[in-house]
Amino acid sequence: MKSKNTRTSYNRKTKKKSTVFSTKFFGNLILVFLFFAVLSIAYHYRSSFAHYLGFKSNLNNDTNVFSEARNLKVLEKNNGKVVGIDVSEYQGKVRWSYVDTIEEKYPLHYVFIRATVGNDRVDRQFKRNWLGAKENKMIRGAYHYYRPNENSLEQAELFIKTVKLKKGDLPPVLDIEKLPKEQSIERLKVGLRRWLKAVESHYGVRPIIYTGEKYYDDFLKEEFGDYLFWIANYNFYREEIQDDWLFWQFTEKATVPGIDYNVDVNVYNGDLQQLQYITVE
């Protein structure tokens, strides 16, 4: 007969083996799931991957083939809607005469250009980009990067002083991405309202609000529903623009002729004639 200690030792070994088996089983199950997930994604983007891996010879070391393939898929899905970009000093010196299409197939009709940041800084490339986009016959718009902890009216004054909108330009844009550190969400919303009203009063046109989808859902959708929104969402599973978005920034990692760095690409929720309809008169 086995002793008590022997039975206890045997039970421990059995439990240990069972635990190891369970861990390996679930680990293998996860690997199988990941394999089929990758296979599914590869199949979904198969035509785009073939385009980049089989026919592109000018890819540089910074090119993310998966991102580029997904970008191409989004453009295909939103065919008929107007495509544009947005730039700032982070794109360096843009050679505007070369900025025309993506993949020599999708024309770039408009550009949003960062003008100001907070209450004290003008984008270093704003003037050059503002003039270059106009010379390149692109519909242009200017945006302000809002700093939550700085005076909203001072920020509006800097934007107004910097940006001279002309007929055919897009409405001004308020870019809000950060949460405040020194004030409540309610005070932030008061500041946003002040900026929006001051800018609308000066230009005679209602501004557009740019933000991320989660920020939009959590803080802005209900109380700022009287404004039009430009939403950033880079999730690979989203391939078409939402009905209630005016613009959709679907990537921050695209390659565009005339620009040496990655650039954001946007889809407007309409055709060219509809885009021209919302410009400044």
Results as ranks from 00 to 15, higher is better:
1 M>S: 15
4 K>I: 14
12 R>I: 03
14 T>W: 09
17 K>M: 04
19 T>V: 14
21 F>W: 12
22 S>Q: 11
25 F>K: 12
28 N>S: 10
29 L>G: 12
30 I>E: 04
30 I>N: 03
31 L>R: 15
33 F>M: 06
35 F>H: 06
36 F>D: 00
37 A>I: 12
39 L>T: 13
39 L>Q: 12
39 L>H: 10
41 I>H: 01
42 A>G: 05
42 A>R: 11
45 Y>L: 15
51 H>A: 15
52 Y>D: 01
53 L>W: 04
54 G>P: 00
55 F>V: 13
58 N>P: 08
62 D>V: 13
63 T>R: 00
63 T>Y: 03
65 V>L: 03
67 S>W: 08
73 K>G: 11
74 V>F: 01
74 V>I: 08
79 N>Y: 11
79 N>L: 11
83 V>W: 10
85 I>D: 00
88 S>I: 03
90 Y>C: 10
95 R>T: 08
97 S>V: 11
98 Y>T: 12
100 D>W: 12
101 T>M: 05
103 E>Q: 12
103 E>S: 13
107 P>F: 06
108 L>D: 08
110 Y>M: 02
111 V>H: 07
113 I>N: 01
114 R>H: 01
117 V>G: 07
119 N>R: 13
128 R>M: 14
128 R>I: 13
129 N>L: 01
130 W>F: 05
132 G>Y: 09
134 K>F: 09
137 K>Y: 09
139 I>H: 14
140 R>A: 07
140 R>P: 09
143 Y>D: 09
143 Y>S: 13
149 N>T: 02
152 S>I: 15
154 E>D: 12
156 A>F: 02
156 A>V: 07
157 E>Q: 12
159 F>Q: 06
162 T>Y: 09
164 K>R: 13
166 K>I: 01
168 G>S: 04
170 L>C: 13
170 L>M: 08
171 P>G: 13
172 P>D: 07
172 P>N: 09
172 P>V: 09
176 I>D: 02
179 L>R: 07
179 L>N: 09
183 Q>E: 11
184 S>G: 11
186 E>A: 14
191 G>D: 00
192 L>R: 05
198 A>H: 00
198 A>N: 03
200 E>M: 08
201 S>W: 15
201 S>T: 15
202 H>V: 06
206 R>Y: 00
208 I>Q: 02
209 I>M: 08
210 Y>W: 02
211 T>D: 01
216 Y>D: 01
218 D>N: 06
220 L>H: 08
222 E>R: 06
223 E>R: 09
229 F>G: 04
229 F>L: 02
231 I>S: 05
237 Y>P: 13
237 Y>W: 07
239 E>D: 06
239 E>S: 08
242 Q>I: 11
242 Q>D: 06
244 D>Q: 05
247 F>K: 05
251 T>R: 10
251 T>H: 06
254 A>P: 00
256 V>D: 03
256 V>A: 05
258 G>E: 00
267 V>Q: 00
270 G>H: 10
271 D>H: 00
274 Q>L: 04
277 Y>K: 14
280 V>I: 10
281 E>P: 15
281 E>H: 14
